[in-house]
Simulated scan of single mutants.
Amino acid sequence: MAHVLVSPLNWGLGHATRDIPVIRTLRDHGHDVTIAACGNALSVLRQEFPDARYIEYPDYPVPFSSGHLFVPKFCAAIPFMLKAVVREHATLEAILAKDRYNLVISDNRLGVFSSEIPSIFVSHQLHYHLPLLYWPAELLAIPVNQYLHEQYNRIIVPDNPPGPLSLAGKLSRPQTDVARERVFYSGILSGTRQLACTRDLDYLIVISGPEPQRSFLEKVILSKIGDLDGSGVVLLGSPQRPKAATRRGNWICVSYVSTEEKAELMNRARCVICRSGYTTLMELAELEKDRALLIPTPGQTEQEYLSWYYKEKGWYHSQDQGHLDLLDDVEKTHKYHGFPAMPKTTENVHRLYDELLAEYLE
């Protein structure tokens, strides 16, 4: 039995939830898994694996900002993040000194690697997409990424290989020889499973993202849901509020739900309206949703690129938050056909273990 340390970044829940099938597979093969995380990522994984061993392991604050100030604020925060990464790495060395580990898996935590123990990095973003105004920063990211990738034995990309089935488009294409040598395309990895239930819900609207953009989207959505025919549920993404549901005509609004409840609602929904965060998009692929409206968080260039990319591919309709016409945009979702057929998480995670992880554990 091998001992594996898994450490996801706590920038949203996506990193933690896509690690769920990986952790489950490691445990199914008899390996001992220690989860090192913080915040909501730690809470979600505790719910999923209550009997696992956990380490409270702080990461670094999210340098989000409102609107299109995201990029300059992110760049301004880089020196502070680098200091945090150094601290993160020092903390990892202390963790590794206390217990014996055979493998370290870091989901987008830049300081979680070891020169003594095989280390694997998980990321769908090997290439950073920035507006043309910031193209020098995009070029500068290439050598920075190369240095980062050199610290890891392998890089797991939760996407299909470059080509017609690639969910991340240019974001998951390696730009350096180091990345090309170490990359392993696992295919989609989603903690949300298909359920045998009836699609009896016309709409599921998932409001998310950092403030103040989450509140801006909530205001827009709640003012327009009355325009839509049919029934629906709005998840407000606001866990600090009371959980009690409120009714608006045929609509139910809930401040937040558990990951299990959200998975059931996504399975039941005929049309999903949501942000274009990558983990959510993998959920749409896993559940084979053919109708969705994507609303990228303003200023988050990755979401804006993915929304544009999917629209160009004819997969899903998208609309900027500031130009949202809910009735018209929902009608346009009928013109798109969803993701093409692709291997699902169960198949992908078995191949990931057999072709990559077993090399370090058996």
Results as ranks from 00 to 15, higher is better:
155 I>D: 01
259 T>R: 15
70 F>Q: 10
180 R>M: 01
132 L>F: 12
341 A>L: 14
202 D>H: 00
356 L>W: 10
50 P>S: 04
193 R>V: 09
40 N>A: 09
234 V>D: 01
208 S>T: 07
235 L>Y: 13
63 P>C: 00
87 R>I: 00
254 V>A: 04
244 A>R: 08
121 F>R: 00
184 F>R: 00
177 D>V: 08
316 Y>T: 00
62 V>P: 03
137 A>E: 08
39 G>K: 09
268 R>V: 07
75 C>V: 15
352 L>Q: 10
123 S>M: 11
87 R>D: 01
39 G>Y: 11
141 A>N: 13
228 L>Y: 05
117 I>W: 05
226 G>L: 07
361 L>D: 01
299 G>F: 12
39 G>Q: 12
305 Y>R: 03
166 S>P: 06
209 G>F: 11
357 L>C: 06
218 E>D: 08
69 L>I: 04
119 S>A: 12
192 T>K: 13
244 A>M: 12
50 P>M: 02
104 V>I: 06
185 Y>W: 08
135 W>C: 13
158 P>C: 03
190 S>Q: 11
181 E>L: 06
132 L>S: 12
330 V>P: 11
220 V>N: 09
314 G>M: 04
151 Q>I: 06
79 P>S: 05
29 H>I: 02
346 T>M: 10
280 T>R: 06
124 H>Q: 09
295 I>Y: 13
11 W>K: 02
284 L>H: 07
193 R>L: 11
344 K>L: 15
124 H>I: 01
79 P>M: 02
274 C>S: 14
